[in-house]
Design a protein around this nucleic acid. Structure first.
Length: 298
DNA sequence: AATGCGGGCAACCGCGCTCTA
DNA sequence: GTAGAGCGCGGTTGCCCGCAT
């Protein structure tokens, strides 16, 4: 026996939302909040929609501070960096890009950024892009840190190429109203020298097809933040060694971006495989490697 | 002008997780 | 401990629009 449907499929409207529906939903949520129950919300709001549909519409389109339009180079870099390390965990990636939704980022990656990168990456890892070529023709050419300290072309890491974000993204998204907060996960501190990654045995789950995937839990983040507070050591690399366990890695992350490549050895061919492989085998290829490489830069 | 095609994106679907009774 | 309800997520679908032929 299958699972009971969340709503009466025969009596709910599907397809694009009309302006009237939008305003009804927006008005209701602004006046009453979600009430913590999306399933019951459409009836209360006078909408003939599935609760899940309302939730999606609100989160992806109607909620305040949604940013639409072109992604900046900065955002590109963040997406690529995170994707290279955690794969298609769009919600986690979205949590680092204020105003962007996971759906937005997912669409952007699938339709534009992936192609952008494929055009940019060389045919094989044996083909080395010279510094000049890269710095001029890369999709992130505005980045002053792009290819910083580029010295050894072999085994060049993806992360090294796309560099680390230069800006500080540390604002909680919807501080004023947590009920409207898009993500369960508080915004993590990404600063000039930080790249925060989650995912290890303590935060893993398995999907139905047996392919494991990592998931950030709020608990993990809180524990991680506590850990960082009690181990206030800037520029150290923190390795997630197990549930609620982090350890300092011997070497430090200095301004020299090459340090990253020594810890995250995704070569170009590997990244290319990630991009070109379909979604099903992507994670299965990715996971073991990623599990070992989950690190916290601070 | 009509048609076909491809890209972009909003929305849907299904499943795992969490919470609660 | 268990089952059911709801939530959140990633993957996929399908519509719309612009461009090429």
């Amino acid at each position: 026996m299958g699972r009971a449907p969340c709503c009466d499929k025969a009596n709910v409207k599907k397809g694009p939302w009309s302006p009237e529906e939008d305003s009804k939903l927006k008005e209701y949520i602004q006046n009453h909040g979600t009430g913590g129950n999306w399933i019951a919300l459409p009836q209360k709001a006078g909408l003939r929609r599935c609760g899940k549909s309302c939730r999606l519409r609100w989160l992806n389109y109607l909620r305040p501070n949604i940013k639409h339009g072109e992604f900046s180079d900065e955002e590109d870099r963040i997406i690529c960096t995170l994707y290279a390390n955690i794969g298609s965990r769009w919600s986690i990636i979205a949590a680092q890009l204020p105003g962007r939704t996971d759906n937005d980022i997912k669409n952007y990656w699938n339709t534009k950024l992936k192609k952008k990168l494929m055009n940019f990456l060389p045919q094989s890892h044996n083909t080395i892009l010279p510094y000049e070529t890269c710095s001029q023709n890369t999709p992130f050419s505005n980045s002053h840190s792009y290819y910083n300290n580029y010295q050894t072309p072999t085994n060049t890491s993806f992360v090294e190429q796309i560099s680390v974000p230069n800006s500080t993204i540390s604002e909680p998204f919807y501080q004023e109203d947590h009920s409207l907060q898009y993500s369960n996960y508080p915004s993590l501190p990404i600063t000039t020298e930080s790249l925060v990654m989650f995912g290890s045995e303590g935060s893993c789950c398995s999907s139905s097809d047996g392919i494991s995937s990592s998931l950030v839990k709020q608990d993990d983040i809180i524990k991680f933040q506590n850990f960082m507070q009690t181990n206030n050591n800037n520029n150290n690399i923190i390795n997630h060694v197990g549930f609620n366990q982090w350890e300092k890695v011997n070497f430090c992350f200095s301004q020299n971006q090459k340090q990253i490549s020594t810890t995250l050895d995704y070569d170009l061919e590997y990244i290319k495989q990630l991009i070109s492989s379909n979604s099903n085998n992507l994670m299965s290829v990715d996971e073991n490697k990623r599990e070992e490489k989950s690190m916290y830069y601070y």
